[in-house]
């Protein structure tokens, strides 16, 4: 068995996790702009005359 330093383990884990969090935060911003604002949409639908 190869002994390993706990410090390197924590370093690697932190790097991966902070990376994951950063990516999901970027996704969250995208998601906010892609999502539908139901109230605004309802208003728009009501304002559109029946064709």
């Amino acid at each position: 068995m190869i002994p390993f330093e706990l410090r390197s383990f924590i370093n690697v884990m932190s790097l991966i996790i902070f990376g994951g969090v950063a990516v999901s935060c970027v996704f969250a911003v995208f998601a906010y702009f892609l999502s539908i604002n139901r109230r605004k949409r309802q208003k728009k639908v009501e304002e559109t005359p029946a064709s």
Partner: peptide, 30 residues
């Protein structure tokens, strides 16, 4: 290893990951 501080490390990591995920979900539904 008597690493009580490691518990904090564990909790912070998972909390941050869950937070990232929750932010995506909350944002996509406003």
């Amino acid at each position: 290893f008597g690493l009580v501080t490691y518990l904090v490390f564990w909790w912070i990591h998972f909390t941050m990951l869950d937070m990232g995920l929750a932010l995506v979900c909350i944002a996509s539904e406003r």
